[in-house]
Design a protein around this nucleic acid. Structure first.
Length: 225
DNA sequence: AGGAAGATCCGCT
DNA sequence: GCGGATCTTCCTG
């Protein structure tokens, strides 16, 4: 990357931001088992309607977190604090948290009230609003690193504390149906402290997508939805 | 009140 | 491939 000269007029990777209206996935989509939601979101769209334009990404990588038994989840052991509170509420709301002193991670709460489950959105393929994403990331608009990681996509989409608890079934941030994609799965990334729970294949990603973040080698294969 | 660890990213010893 | 950056949150004493 970085071989693009600033003033050169480059063909942006298709900003297909039609006046097209997306229909938000309904709450019932998220009121299902967290693994089903994590898998079902691969290929779906993440949309952020903003004053300066619409950001759209095709979801290519997710992870399921299933407290209270899942040692990798922030809600492990039933831990319930101001930070994890939203996970205990209704499905379809945003769980956004700050980590490593500089990154925000964006999740959607799943399951029924009282079930502290959530799906982490780890990577998307930019479909619209690339210029805005690139500006936030401080990278060229055609960079392959705009949204290929949970911290990166949060920065590109402008997600932070202000989005904590947001209803994702009502906009301005929401999900929309996309095309079915071949899905693969692996162990989750960055949770070695969770011991045997880290080994569970609860990371889902689109096979052969260049927008997937780096992580454990894929293993296993699933049919295209 | 203090300390330790963290669902990451970036750049290079 | 490894370590530093950086700061919030949570737990312990």
């Amino acid at each position: 990357m970085g071989r693009a000269h600033g003033n050169e007029r480059r063909e942006a990777p298709e900003e297909r931001d039609d006046a097209l209206r997306y229909q938000a996935l309904p709450r019932s989509f998220f009121e299902r088992p967290v693994l089903s939601v994590a898998r079902g979101l691969i290929g779906a769209l993440l949309v952020h309607e903003q004053p300066r334009g619409r950001l759209v990404g095709r979801i290519v990588e997710t992870e399921a977190y299933r407290g209270p038994e899942d040692r990798a989840a922030h809600s492990f052991g039933g831990r319930r604090t101001s930070r994890t509170e939203v996970m205990y509420g209704a499905a379809g709301h945003a769980y956004v948290f700050f980590v490593y002193g500089m990154h925000w991670n964006f999740n959607v709460v799943t399951g029924g009230v009282g079930q502290p489950h959530a799906v982490l959105i780890r990577a998307v393929e930019p479909l619209a609003g690339q210029r805005q994403m690139a500006a936030r990331r401080g990278l060229p608009v055609d960079s392959p690193c705009l949204t290929n990681g949970p911290g990166k996509l949060s920065q590109a989409f402008g997600f932070d504390r202000s989005h904590y608890g947001l209803d994702l079934c009502a906009g301005p941030v929401y999900f929309a149906a996309g095309e079915p994609l071949a899905v693969r799965r692996s162990a989750r990334v960055g949770v070695p402290y969770a011991r045997e729970w880290a080994e569970r294949p609860w990371r889902f990603f689109a096979a052969d997508s260049p927008w997937v973040s780096r992580g454990p080698r894929a293993r296993g294969r699933l049919p295209a939805r």
